[in-house]
């Protein structure tokens, strides 16, 4: 198991965070945040982070706002968005603008996410 990839996952649902952690902990280094603000703090602190995944709908700043803010700090990082909704025009726009690399609809396949992370970081 290569642990050279460090993932930041932001989601307001703690269960999502736990399950993500359970599956991914043996594959990647993980940082988990319950809000965009927390995510930004972690991103500020941890310079090892190689990829950022964020839920779309969150209290406070939403996924896109967070990613926008995060991309200002670390523009080189790939950002994925995970959404309970279908693709929205904003997301489509963000994808087109290259801000968001990929988007996944919930419920997502862990394997797909894993593969996506590897592909994006590689």
């Amino acid at each position: 198991m290569e642990k050279n990839i460090t993932v930041l996952y932001v989601d307001d649902e703690p269960v999502n965070l736990e399950i993500f952690e359970f599956y991914m902990r043996r594959r990647f280094n993980l940082f988990l945040a319950e809000s965009g603000a927390r995510g930004l703090e972690i991103l500020e602190r941890e310079k090892d982070i190689s990829i950022v995944l964020s839920d779309m709908k969150m209290p406070g700043m939403n996924g896109l706002e967070f990613i926008t803010a995060a991309s200002h700090k670390r523009p080189e990082l790939p950002f994925f968005i995970l959404t309970g909704y279908d693709i929205t025009p904003q997301i489509a726009q963000a994808i087109q603008a290259g801000l968001v690399k990929r988007y996944y609809s919930k419920p997502y396949q862990m394997k797909e996410i894993e593969a996506g992370i590897r592909e994006a970081v590689a």
Binding site: N16, G84, Y85
Partner: peptide
Amino acid sequence: AGIAHEINNPLNFILGGVAGIED
């Protein structure tokens, strides 16, 4: 749309959970 979001999260728990268990 509202319903979809609310259902999708639990579905995500299940799918993620199963993926974890399988793993």
